[in-house]
Design a protein around this nucleic acid. Sequence first.
DNA 1: AAAATAGTGTCTTTCAGACAGTATACA
DNA 2: TGTATACTGTCTGAAAGACACTATTTT
Lengths: 239, 239
Amino acid sequence: MPSEADFLKSYDPSNFERPSVSVDLILLSIVEGKLAALLMRRDAHPALDLWALPGGFVGIAESLDDAAARVLREKARLDSTFVEQLYTFGAPDRDPRTRVISVAYFALLPAARFDPALSPYRVLARLEVSQGTAAAHVHEGQLSIAFDHSAIIATAVARLRGKLDYVPLAAALLAPRFTLRQLQDVHEAILETRLNKPAFRRRMLDKGWLAPTGEREAGTSYRPAELYRFVSSTDASNI
Amino acid sequence: MPSEADFLKSYDPSNFERPSVSVDLILLSIVEGKLAALLMRRDAHPALDLWALPGGFVGIAESLDDAAARVLREKARLDSTFVEQLYTFGAPDRDPRTRVISVAYFALLPAARFDPALSPYRVLARLEVSQGTAAAHVHEGQLSIAFDHSAIIATAVARLRGKLDYVPLAAALLAPRFTLRQLQDVHEAILETRLNKPAFRRRMLDKGWLAPTGEREAGTSYRPAELYRFVSSTDASNI
DNA sequence: AAAATAGTGTCTTTCAGACAGTATACA
DNA sequence: TGTATACTGTCTGAAAGACACTATTTT
């Protein structure tokens, strides 16, 4: 048997027909108390004029995480907050151009961070998620979603809901300082339920994720609430 | 602007250098009260003689799920039970041959189903998982694990532990009829903890996953336990 | 003082852990 | 009848839901 070095020298990777690999980014936020995602109107075939997740092909020497960060930077023009690999979608016919396997990443961002990037071709669309599909609305109009991106969005929202109580995800959806009521509003928007106030406060404070800052919110009528911040947790979150 | 049909006709997918895409299968089981995974000794470069997960390249017209099922059938020579996509590993240098992005799937199987497939080159190795890496042992010897498969196994075990209480995964690790003690043994092996018997029984029965069969185990000394079966749950498990 | 929201005390319910008890099979 | 394990009753404590109460700020 030849050595590994000999083997690698003679190995020809062009023997197999290969799929393209892309990353698609589900950028979730809370807008007016509702879950929303960044969608971009396609300006080219295929799926011209339909609304799609920002995405891009993975470079041949680029890690998947790096590709996701690059798409966040270049396409969404945003810097990174919480970004996590979600799921890989690989149905053979999901893109009419050629075989494209898409590694979906989901990211969380406070809505305020989006403003400079918004335009008629780049919207934060309100989501209605049910039964494995998602619908997207802007004002009163429903957007037509390209490819299988509706299912991808629904998967992201399911993951977000599932992790909300175990990982301090809401940190990525709020400003650095926030009140417990704002935190509860984020949870209620994501879960689409009403939560019990004393129980929510007890639970959050018991987790050890939060630290009081001693400061209070400003500019409110009536009693201002204390501002909290998330403490950087040292435990590695597993998948 | 040309029509979508014209666009697709003129689209040349060979413009980009593409990675290879493979699936790797983490086949988990319980052997003698311990978590174990199927590993195969590599009979070719690279990583010759090291132990690797069964895997294979994804066909150009084959879905990822189909590729995983094919690998389970051809490489592991087993038919499908519980199979679920786990995570996609795409570090640029994870395979010395060429860029290989691997979509990892994990599957569960009762240990009894493995016997015909075992050989010196195909073992159910006992796992020791800690801190994002897994070590594999057979008898007293530790196996050297190829590529990044140690991290992949650790990710699978973390997912298994996380889902155990929410999804009736243990069904895939037991015979069709089983006692509550056997079910508890499976949970204890996976979680590597001791569980409280009355609480475990209450919890399992309250979930509605189980149905008593009215039959009892045979061939035991002393009182035989009732046999249960899993009822097919109709709710779709989300990711 | 009124208004409105922040924040808390406490009762009840639910559920897990613990432990001891009863039940049932075989030798 | 003894033994070993299946199975259950019940106590205790932890934590969530519900509700009402107190606290604090601005108008």
